[in-house]
């Protein structure tokens, strides 16, 4: 049964049209022209309970606007939303009880208070039964390693510590659905790993439904099985990450190290991607050319000291889609 459903969801923002120059700025004080832009333009999606979905798109694609509508902060211009059988912007208070939110760029902790007191306040806001609160808190203190800074005012915490605190804060009331908006932004590798581990556990052990937006595709690769890619407010891909890789990650790279110096390096069935001294990178379409045949051809023509095949990472796949757009099935033309 779907826990989150949207149908033809749209959000149009109206903004003041800026006119150039000082004259334009003064004229704008008296009369304003508006322009409209659809930040979200007809999004239909459906998430099952317990899913962990990566919600991706370039800056300004409409990710945050979608999340804001799902949390009930923004009223859609048209279309429908249902989150755990509630309409978020009509039933904001009830919906708030079901959801947890972590925005990487903002903290919901109280700046002047130690974590412990922020958590106590949240307990009271969400009306979490004391015993359940105690259990959750103990659990999060342990797995997020919060113990040493529970009594430090939030403003004195490092970004990594604060994020761990924010994660605990968002989960204390056992939300069914969690929205994570760039939760690992600005974190170092160790902190990122701790957060990813926490998200995995949350999803696996508590069955929490999670929507994750991020620009760090390692997050997606590590956490999500399904991705929804949006651009210009519309969904351009919705499916398992493996399919994205299959359809778009058709190009592999053969990296050869030449044993001798050769002028021009060319191997039939592959394009030269780059060459640095003796290291040559050749790009090929795995559906047209097999790696085995390519290697054989290369070895016939040149003396090689090393060979490697590089699989495309999700980063380069998504980069390519952002650049070229996604067309179902149309993956033939090499770039």
């Amino acid at each position: 049964m779907a826990i989150i459903e949207t149908a033809d969801l749209r959000k149009v923002f109206r903004s003041v049209k800026r006119r150039p120059g000082v004259g334009g700025a003064i004229a704008a004080l008296f009369s304003r022209e508006y322009e409209e832009k659809a930040a979200v333009d007809g999004i239909t999606m459906s998430l099952e309970a317990g899913e962990l979905v990566g919600y991706l798109g370039p800056n300004g694609a409409g990710k945050s606007t979608t999340i804001k509508m799902l949390t009930g902060i923004l009223v859609p211009t048209s279309g429908s939303i249902s989150v755990a059988d509630l309409v978020p912007h009509r039933q904001r208070l009830e919906n708030a009880q079901n959801i947890g939110v972590v925005f990487g760029q903002r903290s919901q902790l109280y700046w002047d208070l130690p974590l412990r007191e922020s958590f106590a306040l949240l307990r009271s806001i969400y009306d979490v039964p004391r015993e359940r609160f105690r259990e959750n808190l103990d659990h999060f203190i342990e797995i997020l390693d919060l113990d040493e800074f529970m009594d430090t005012p939030v403003r004195q915490l490092s970004l990594g510590e604060r994020m761990r605190g924010d994660f605990a804060a968002a989960m204390l009331h056992d939300p069914k659905i969690v929205y994570l908006d760039e939760p690992t932004i600005g974190l170092d590798v160790v902190a990122k790993e701790a957060i990813r581990e926490f998200i995995t556990q949350l999803n696996r052990e508590r069955g929490t439904t999670i929507i994750l937006t991020t620009h760090d595709l390692a997050d997606i690769e590590r956490l999500a099985r399904r991705v929804i890619l949006i651009d210009d407010g519309t969904i351009i891909f919705d499916g398992p990450i493996s399919r994205l890789r299959e359809e778009y990650g058709t190009h592999r790279t053969l990296v050869i190290t030449l044993a001798d110096s050769y002028e021009d390096v060319q191997v039939e069935g592959a394009d030269l991607e780059s060459r640095e001294g003796n290291v040559v990178r050749l790009r090929f379409d795995r559906r047209r050319t097999s790696a085995e045949a390519l290697i054989r051809r290369a070895m016939e023509r040149y003396a090689l000291s090393d060979i490697a095949i590089v699989e495309p990472d999700i980063d380069s796949i998504v980069r390519r889609i952002y650049r070229e757009g996604y067309t179902e099935g149309a993956i033939g033309s090499p770039s």
Binding site: T71, A96, F103, R106, I125, Y126
Partner: peptide, 13 residues
């Protein structure tokens, strides 16, 4: 600072 957005995600008036 935009934090009002987070205030609205909580079940409070």
């Amino acid at each position: 600072d935009g934090s009002i957005v987070l205030d609205f995600t909580k079940p409070m008036r």
